[in-house]
C-alpha cells in the first residue's frame, strides 16, 4: 500500500505534470559475482577535479557481467557511463575499487584479443582506405576474421576502396563497427554504436550483433536509443550519478518503475480520492482525464471501482523502457538531491 505522498516525482520533461506520487521502492538487484565473470566492478569510484569542485563521476559502482549476455548500459548524460566504460577498457584508472576483465587486467585481456570495442570518441586514420584501415585492425588482433567478412557484416563492402576521412559520419560509424568485430573477441563493447546510422543500417547492425550474441559472445552496449535496449538486451543496467540504479531484464525494470499507464475519464473526482489508490507511481490530470502510472494496474483499478467510482474510457497501456528509465532516474534524483553535476536527462526529449 502506498502511504502519504511523500516525494514528488515529475516524469515529464517540461515539468508541467500534475500532482505526483512516489511509488514502490526498487532496489538494484545485487548480482553475485561468481568466478569466470567477463566484467567485474567492485566498489569502483572515480572523481574528476573541475574548477567548480570535485565531480564524482563514478561513485561506488559494483556490477558484474557473465559470458554470453547481451547487456544494455543506460544512464542519463553525466551518469558516469563513459567513465565506467573507459575504466572497463583500461583507458583510465579507478581512484578506488577493482575493475577486472576476464579475471585480470584490461591490458592483458586486450593484448590477448579478448576485447573488441567501438568507442564514441574513437578516431580513424586519415589518408587510408576503408580496406586498409580494417586490414590494420585485423593485424593488430591475434585471431581476426577475414577482412572481407568484417566489411560484409558491417555493410561496408562497397566502401572498401573509399578514403576513410571522406566518409559520412554514419559510414565511419560502420567502419568502427567492422573494427570492433574483426578480432572475433569474446567481449564486444559498444559506446553509442548506432548514433548517426540510418534505419536500414541500424537494423543490419543489430542483426549482426544478434549473430555475435548467438555465437556466445558477451555484448555490452551503451545507448541513448532505449527501444534498442528494450529489443536487443537480455539485461539492462541503469546507472545514475555514478551508482548502480537498476539491474535486470527490460521487463523487470519496467515493472519496478511502475510499468503500466492506467487512464480514464472521471469528471469531478477529488485529488485526495486518487491519492488513496494503491500502487501509484505517478498521477497526472488534465481536466476530466486522469492518467495514472501504476506498478499494479489491476489492483489500482479494483480499488478505484471498490471506492464506488465509475470511470469511463478506461485504457491500460504498458510503458516502454524509456518511460521506465525516466521514472527511475527522476525518482532517484529527487531522492538524493537532484542530478549529479552537469547531468541532464537527455532521454527526456
Amino acid at each position: 500500500m502506498v502511504g502519504a505522498p511523500a516525494a514528488m516525482v515529475s516524469l515529464t520533461a517540461k515539468g508541467n505534470a500534475g500532482p505526483t506520487l512516489k511509488g514502490m521502492p526498487h532496489m538494484p538487484r545485487q548480482t553475485p559475482s561468481p568466478q569466470g565473470a567477463v566484467v567485474e566492478f567492485e566498489n569502483v569510484s572515480k572523481t574528476f577535479h573541475s574548477p567548480k569542485g570535485p565531480v564524482h563521476a563514478v561513485n561506488g559502482l559494483t556490477m558484474s557481467m557473465q559470458a554470453g549476455q547481451t547487456i544494455a548500459f543506460l544512464g542519463p548524460n553525466g551518469a558516469g557511463k563513459s567513465t565506467s566504460l573507459n575504466m572497463l577498457l583500461g583507458l583510465s584508472r579507478p581512484d578506488s575499487g577493482r575493475v577486472a576483465l576476464f579475471g585480470g587486467t584490461a591490458a592483458e585481456a586486450i593484448k590477448h584479443g579478448k576485447v573488441g570495442a567501438m568507442l564514441q570518441s574513437g578516431g580513424l586514420m586519415s589518408d587510408v582506405t576503408v580496406q586498409e584501415q580494417v586490414q590494420l585492425w585485423a593485424k593488430l588482433h591475434p585471431r581476426p576474421i577475414p577482412v572481407s567478412e568484417a566489411l560484409k557484416r558491417a555493410n561496408i563492402a562497397d566502401l572498401a576502396d573509399r578514403r576513410v576521412d571522406k566518409l559520412s559520419g554514419g559510414q565511419q560509424q560502420r567502419v568502427q563497427f567492422a573494427m570492433a568485430i574483426i578480432g572475433d573477441s569474446p567481449l564486444i563493447v559498444l559506446d553509442e554504436p548506432t548514433t548517426g546510422m540510418d534505419v536500414e543500417n541500424r537494423q543490419a547492425f543489430w542483426a549482426t550483433m544478434r549473430e555475435r550474441a548467438l555465437e556466445g559472445k558477451t555484448v555490452l552496449f551503451a545507448t541513448h536509443y532505449l527501444e534498442e535496449a528494450d529489443q536487443f538486451a537480455e539485461r539492462v543496467i541503469v546507472i545514475n550519478k555514478g551508482r548502480l540504479l537498476a539491474d535486470g531484464t527490460s521487463a523487470e525494470i519496467k515493472a519496478s518503475a511502475g510499468a503500466k499507464r492506467l487512464s480514464f475519464r472521471l469528471p469531478g473526482v477529488q485529488d485526495a480520492a486518487l491519492y488513496r489508490l494503491p500502487n501509484l507511481v505517478h498521477v497526472e490530470r488534465q481536466a476530466d482525464v486522469v492518467r495514472l502510472q501504476t506498478s499494479d494496474s489491476d489492483a489500482t483499478l479494483y480499488a478505484l471501482l471498490d471506492a464506488g467510482l465509475r470511470p469511463t474510457d478506461i485504457e491500460i497501456q504498458p510503458l516502454g523502457l524509456e518511460q521506465a528509465f525516466l521514472a527511475i532516474t527522476a525518482e532517484d534524483n529527487n531522492h538524493s538531491g537532484g542530478p549529479a553535476d552537469g547531468a541532464t536527462l537527455e532521454a527526456a526529449r
Partner: peptide
C-alpha cells in the same frame, strides 16, 4: 580524434 585511444584497444 581519439585514434591513439583506439590503438590502446589493440595488441
Amino acid at each position: 580524434t581519439g585514434w591513439t585511444r583506439q590503438l590502446r584497444l589493440t595488441s
